[in-house]
Design a protein around this nucleic acid. Structure first.
Lengths: 346, 346
DNA sequence: ATTGGCACTCTCATACTAAGAGTGCTAAGA
DNA sequence: TCTTAGCACTCTTAGTATGAGAGTGCCAAT
């Protein structure tokens, strides 16, 4: 099962060549373009071995070789050279520059949008961002603004600097003065609590208050419950279709249609990304490793970003399996860290 | 230049047939599918006339006929039957149902997104919405929420029920108490003023206040100026790429790429749509009539929607020239009116 | 004025062919 | 024993040819 150094060299050469050119790579190409001190015949033999071991495959008899998922996987795990760090460094500079010029806005919506653009622009693939999960963020402040008799605008701020606004209908009319007191009460009780623990916290509070019944408190809690029910599904930002159009693997309409179907149904994609939130850091899904089977001929690279305390969202890149894993991994990694930094500052 | 009744019948038949099938239509098809009491030879003669007059064209010698832009234009202007109203009525019911089930949300962002989805879903083309132009909306209320020493969250509500929030850095620290007073001042002065007149109003105010100098007022106005500078470019919502993929005219990647390029650069599209805001009501751009020349082989149907007082945004559909104008016009029209109604209620 | 008939044109799908790229295998060389 | 050169073989791709089919334009007859 172990590969000899020479086999690894050849495999690396094939993968890199295919990543660059999108053409099945033949033994002659390898011997010419990579200085391995071997003639094409020897390389042919080794490539036949690699095929037998499942790292390479041929689109048809007597064509060049193409990496299999297993081949890509081995490449990602073992063959990404150390030198990548320095290249990543250069990349980092471009990224920093890119972020600086494009992320002037401190609006969360805008931040997400721009970040997904940067991802796609840098990677020449689809950039995706799963916006901060409400539940994972931390309560900071709430404000109520009365719009009409029974209609109240709720503005909602988390420690991460996320602002959300929603309009709710109250059961009965509440004066602006009362709304302010309710807000003060909630802010005192809930500041610093992770949103997903708020419900529990409220229930505790309710039990405590039961004895010395307070109409205001009861109202406050009812109001907040109403807001919680409106918990918005994590939004997802996708950018870069125009990048994808340029890729030769999507020169066929049916292929691009398939990809589109996969990302169109955002709910599946969201729950898919949710599962990658468990483990922190960069994760690479190659072709069939992809949990979603409409994406079997795509690869996805994701990483998590953190809010004040914990992981709150995902950034990632989706593209054809033939993707510059080394480069994209470092782009995704850096973007995630950048977002974490921004959100930590609040 | 005038067309005889028979010529009009034939032209209508050709246009409708082509809209339905996307195939160049021959004289035989017309005589078979439309009961005009004419044999194919007669129809052939008429079609040749229509071609000479520029209403039809042939993809190649001895193929069926396809409507030209002029042909579509004549169809839209003169040949859409009266019966369309009743069909529109049926459509309207579906639309109402569609809106009712999907537009539960009263969040503006969500409203726009859902409306663009409805547009594309109903028309099987691209649905686009130009979100309310800030300048055209009417000031209702402002609130400041202090986040950090010099960082203030501004929440902004218009009479149309649009909520915007932005974070600004103030020059020096302002207490929450002062912020409240500033908000009260601004709200008193500016309520009911169209946002685009706010700047002028402020300048007037400044001149008046100059005599009895008031630090608070001056601060308030400076703050507001800062917000105005951040005036966000009108956002645009586009939905329905998956619909477009199904259309035969976009079975070629280069075609779909061209369309994508056109809508990708949102700024051009926005300024394009801006120009259609001058005249109220439904407008139809057929092929070369399109101001944007990347869209020369597309048609666009737009309409304006109003806020409390005036036109504040655009809804529209973009698709191939072969589009069911009758149907799409009524969809766009209804959607615009629906949005206006929703926004009037606030 | 309308219709039937007929020759003509052009596309599209299919089949065929030659060129080219790449392989696998074998035998000779280091 | 490993490497290399050579050669026959396979498979794709691009280009060409061919025939069917759809549609036209025009002419003569009604």
């Amino acid at each position: 099962m172990e590969l000899s150094d020479r086999n690894r060299d050849i495999l690396r050469a094939v993968v890199q060549s295919f990543i660059n050119t999108a053409e099945p790579v033949g033994s002659k190409t390898v011997s010419k373009r990579f200085d391995l001190g071997l003639c094409s015949a020897s390389i042919r033999n080794i490539m036949a071995d690699l095929e037998e071991m499942g790292y390479l495959s041929q689109p048809y008899t007597s064509a060049g070789r193409v990496p299999t998922d297993k081949g890509y996987r081995f490449y990602v795990n073992n063959l990404v050279e150390e030198s990548s760090v320095t290249i990543g460094e250069r990349h980092r500079e471009i990224l920093v520059e890119e972020f600086r010029t494009r992320l002037a806005s401190s609006d969360m919506n805008q931040l997400m949008k721009e970040a997904s653009k940067v991802l796609s622009f840098m990677s020449h693939n689809l950039g995706i961002i799963l916006a901060p999960k409400c539940g994972e963020t931390i309560y900071r402040k709430i404000e109520f603004i009365k719009l009409k008799a029974r209609r109240v605008l709720v503005v909602f701020i988390t420690e991460e600097g996320i602002v959300q606004d929603r309009v709710i209908e109250t059961e009965d009319e509440i004066t602006q003065r009362d709304l302010i007191r309710i807000a003060e009460f909630l802010n005192a009780k809930l500041k610093g609590v992770p949103l997903k623990d708020v419900r529990r916290k409220i229930e505790e509070e309710l039990r405590e208050e039961e004895a010395r019944y307070d109409r205001l408190v009861e109202r406050a809690l009812r109001l907040y419950n109403q807001i919680l029910e409106m918990e918005r599904a994590g939004e997802i930002y996708i950018w870069g279709m125009s990048e994808v159009f340029e890729l030769p693997e999507f020169s066929d309409v049916t292929k691009i249609k398939r990809l589109f179907k996969a990302i169109e149904d955002k709910h599946t994609l969201i729950s898919l990304l949710d599962t990658t939130m468990e483990a922190e850091g960069v994760r690479v899904f190659i072709g069939s490793e992809n949990p979603c089977h409409e994406m079997q001929d795509c690869s996805m690279i994701t990483s998590t970003y953190r809010g004040r305390e914990r992981v709150i969202g995902i950034v990632g890149v989706i593209g054809p399996r033939r993707m510059d894993y080394r480069e994209v991994i470092s782009i995704v990694d850096y973007t995630a860290k950048f977002l974490s930094r921004v959100l930590r500052k609040g």
